[in-house]
Amino acid sequence: MIMWFAGLILLIVKLAVVLGFLLFLAAYLVWVERKFLARLQIRYGPNRAGRYGLLQPIADTVKMLTKEDTIPDGADKGLFCLAPAVVAMTAMLMFAVVPFGPELSVFGRKVPLVITDLNIGLLFVFALSSLGVYGVALGGWASNSKYSLLGGIRGAAQMISYELALGLSLVPIVMLARSFSVVDIVQAQERYPFILVQPVAFVIFMISAMAESKRIPFDLPEAENELVAGFHTEYSGIRFGLFFLGEYVHMQVLGALVAVLFLGGWRGPFLPPPVWLFIKIILVVLFMIWTRGTLPRLRYDQLMTLGWKMLIPLALLNIVVTGAVVLF
């Protein structure tokens, strides 16, 4: 009984720490993105709220919370309210299977540094990632606005295309690790990170991950110079905030997945494991921002060509080659 309670308390503590960290990081990722992007463009970036604009995320949050929350007249109210929650929730749930350290021993009790170690962890990630697109599509449709609808449809089409490449690119990893559990995959990288043996998979995954998180150069669902603000045109206030939050949590999750699947997860010398994971996540995210500062948005047909005609065949080829290597 006591053990059960202890387990529960432990879980709650872990959840609180991870969630808190996730949300805090999401907020500061905005600051990081704005600052980093500004420097790429020879600007200062936010520098008014606090020193170096460090209080900017707080100011943004306050603004978002206090802004008027409008629902368009013709909108489907229920779905309209649900959509941002779906986006934010699925993004956060994905983090549940990411390990941020080896098993820890506290008062003689083994504590795994992961919220939950599912043996189908990767499938869970894909499932949630697929669910996330519902938020975008529903939000776009429920707004009763042409821009939102176009954005939503683009989002759905893009997700379907890149989900495939994303999944296929990880098949070789699963083949190498012989497990769907993310914890096991990290374990399997004890000697070397998978990026060294699977560079092609890494590239495909990176590209697909950026497309999944709807980031430039794949931000067609928002495409502000064509669609005003795409699927979230009609959203304001905290509902818009949830979409925003979802996007940045998604960035972190994908950064974490890249770290866990290709960069050896929490492994690293000298520093404690969660710090290593953090550093790796930040590096991946910085790369994403750097990409944003460098590449222009793809055209819709280019997006589809890249997905269907290049990434998927390449991923399939990679599976065949990896399979052959593993087999023989």
């Binding site: 790429l40 463009q41 020879i42 600007r43 750097w290 500062g293 460098t294």
Partner: peptide, 13 residues
């Protein structure tokens, strides 16, 4: 873009 990181911002405050 990377090189731009190390240039002085042109913004007038």
């Amino acid at each position: 873009t990377f090189n731009h990181l190390f240039r002085r911002p042109v913004t007038e405050e």
